[in-house]
Design a protein around this nucleic acid. Structure first.
Length: 577
RNA sequence: GCUCCCGUAGCUCAGAUGGAUAGAGCGGCGGACUUCUAAUCCGUAGGUCGUAGGUUCGAUUCCUACCGGGGGCGCCA
């Protein structure tokens, strides 16, 4: 338990409970700008006891001994207890956290199997900024869940099945396989898809062929499947390339496309029918989950089987749930999917639960997110009015970063400049995406993202690089200062120390709501606190050898938390920049 | 029409289970580089927290109703 606020809360909880007459009573300890922390619980408790809040606060202080952790306590205002942590306590906690592989972050109370469904691009279609959000948010969550000890299964639910494949395969035939493969491999997927779509919309003969091809595909025709695999193969190769550039954990091993659930769809319908949930409505087989209404205020169905006998995405999403719960044994399933899908996912969850496929204890959560907007507050488009290709976006970011590196640190060898530019450019894109509340739309802005000031990844990376630079120039091995107990004296040292101990809370708050921006906010505060410390507390020219070693220890731990924190977001930490 | 989400400083955004004077960055203004990377730091100005009610000792936070913006609402995914 690295966070001192939690330590105080744990110490006070039994005291509050005793005063409350045995009822579990939360001391309500919060960070404060009037002291290190404030205890608010007395106010709520006072009413129940018919005493004044200040009186209760005094009872609390009389009944407990906080001397091991606090250097001062006072009752303030209507009945708050302000506490100041003792410097010795903070130093002790810091050493303990520095000695921990997880840097003070608590392990998960129980190891859970967590399925994270994210990225989900479509075969034979370009990856756009829209996919950036799912990919980057999902990746960060995967890293954090694993960090605290959960067992994570990554699933990339790619769009590799359905009616569009009829026209795509026919277009492939028209083009010739060699030419098609060539076009697909250079990443010109949009043009391939568009050409197929144009022919489908304007050419009746082609449309007929496409329809017939879908039937062949669904019927398992060998030759059709071979061509389908060609399309899927070229696309997934391209996805892998983008994932590699982006630096996310997804690989081809994580592919669980819609086609994978195809053989299970009939079974889904059978099971629903056996449970008596299926109803026939306008010729389609549907389930009516409670609480969902259509425009006419009539029950809204989840369509399981269309009038023409075909299945749709609801069916495959249900198969997905069954697979994840029954085969994988998931305790938690996270859908990192855009917010427009929220009603659909709620309906899928409702039907799954009603069918008894998902135990009460199993969590199905929609980790929803908003759009990436351009300066005009509309969905980000390129100059020509098309969706922005993810690949091109990343390339541009690295190029822009390279210019900045060249300008700021020209002495760096060219090869290293390129590597640092890559780390900064990719990090900036990811951080811009992760650092705001995911549920909201965010505005994409090159200037701000790569401005290297304010709440941006270059600013955080810079704090880390400066620390590395101190050790490098002094010729001191970082590990050698790791056991030193720092002397927390200067206010900047104190602020930094307290912030370092909050890494634990930051990670858990983030996981609690699946909101990576909370970790970002924490890391930004840490970087600000460090920059202030750096300015006010000289390390190599400290007043004494003891102070120097103390500050080196603080620096080392700061760098470790920063590097680990950024790594949890999927962002690299260059040692020079 | 029903329903979900959003509405905080000029701009871009933080504000966990309600807690004492609402925070940061950018931009503005004013300072700090012979000193561990100034890609930095320090100071300052700037807000009826969309509006109106309600619950509470206490509301940016919870509830209700409005106003504004966006999404969803049966055989696309």
């Amino acid at each position: 338990m690295a966070d001192p606020v939690l330590t105080v809360a744990e110490l006070l909880r039994p005291v509050f409970t005793r005063i409350a007459g045995g009822l579990d009573s939360d001391p309500v300890v919060r960070r404060s700008d009037r002291a290190d922390a404030q205890v608010n619980g007395s106010l709520a408790l006072a009413k129940a006891l018919g005493k004044s809040p200040r009186e209760v606060a005094q009872m609390v202080l009389d009944a407990c001994d906080l001397s091991k952790v606090c250097s001062a306590t006072e009752i303030a205002g209507p009945g708050f207890i302000n506490v100041t942590f003792s410097n010795e306590f903070l130093a002790r906690e810091l050493v303990a956290a520095a000695d921990d592989v997880r840097l003070g972050v608590r392990n998960a109370p129980a190891k859970l199997k967590v399925v994270v469904d994210y990225s989900a691009p479509n075969v034979a279609k370009e990856m756009h900024v829209g996919h950036l959000r799912s990919t980057v948010i999902g990746d960060a969550l995967v890293r954090m869940l694993e960090f605290v000890g959960h067992s994570v299964v990554r699933e990339n639910h790619i769009g590799d099945w359905g009616t569009p494949f009829g026209m795509l395969i026919e277009h492939l035939i028209d083009l010739g396989e060699t030419e098609a493969a060539n076009e697909l491999s250079v990443g010109d997927l949009d043009s391939f898809y568009r050409q197929a779509r144009i022919k489908f919309d304007s050419n009746d003969e082609f449309k007929e062929r496409a329809r017939a091809r879908v039937v062949l595909l669904q019927g398992g025709d060998d030759e059709t499947l071979r061509m389908w695999k060609l399309l899927v193969g070229e696309s997934t190769r391209y996805f892998d390339k983008v994932y590699q550039t982006l630096g996310v954990l997804l690989t081809s091993d994580d592919l669980m496309g819609e086609s994978a659930y195809n053989p299970l769809l009939a079974h889904v319908v059978d099971r629903l029918r056996a449970s008596g949930l299926i109803e026939i409505s306008d010729g389609a087989e549907v389930v009516f989950p409670d609480g969902f209404l259509n425009r006419e205020n009539e029950p809204l169905p989840l369509i399981i089987r269309k009038t023409d006998g075909g299945y749709n995405y609801a069916t495959s999403d249900l198969a997905c749930v069954i697979d994840r719960v029954e085969r994988i044994g998931a305790n938690v399933v996270l859908y990192v999917v855009g917010s427009p899908q929220s009603q659909h996912l709620e309906m899928v969850a409702a039907v799954s639960r009603r069918a008894g496929w998902v135990p009460e204890s199993t969590e199905l959560t929609h980790v929803a997110f908003g759009n990436v907007l351009g300066a005009d507050r509309k969905i980000l488009k390129s100059r020509s009015g098309e969706a922005v290709k993810l690949d091109a976006l990343l390339t541009e970011s690295v190029e822009r970063a390279a210019e900045a590196v060249k300008e700021k640190n020209a002495e760096l060898p060219a090869a290293q400049q390129a590597e640092v530019a890559r780390q900064i450019g990719i990090g900036a894109v990811k951080y811009a995406d992760l650092s705001t509340d995911r549920i909201k739309d965010y505005m994409f802005d090159w200037e701000r993202m790569l401005a290297f000031e304010g709440n941006t990844s270059p600013y955080l990376q810079y704090a880390h690089a400066r620390i590395c630079s101190i050790f490098r120039k002094a010729g001191i091995d970082r590990a050698s200062v790791r056991r030193i107990t720092p002397t927390v004296e200067h206010s900047a040292e104190r602020a930094l120390t307290m912030r370092l101990l909050q890494f634990d809370t930051a990670v858990w708050d983030t996981l609690d709501k699946y909101s990576p921006h909370r970790l970002c906010t924490y890391l930004f505060e840490l970087a600000s606190e460090f920059s202030s410390f750096y300015e006010h507390c000289p390390v190599m020219r400290a007043d004494s050898e003891e102070q120097k070693m103390s500050r080196l220890a603080l620096c080392d731990f700061t760098a470790r938390v920063m590097e680990q924190g950024l790594a949890l977001l999927g962002i690299e930490s260059p040692e020079q920049m």
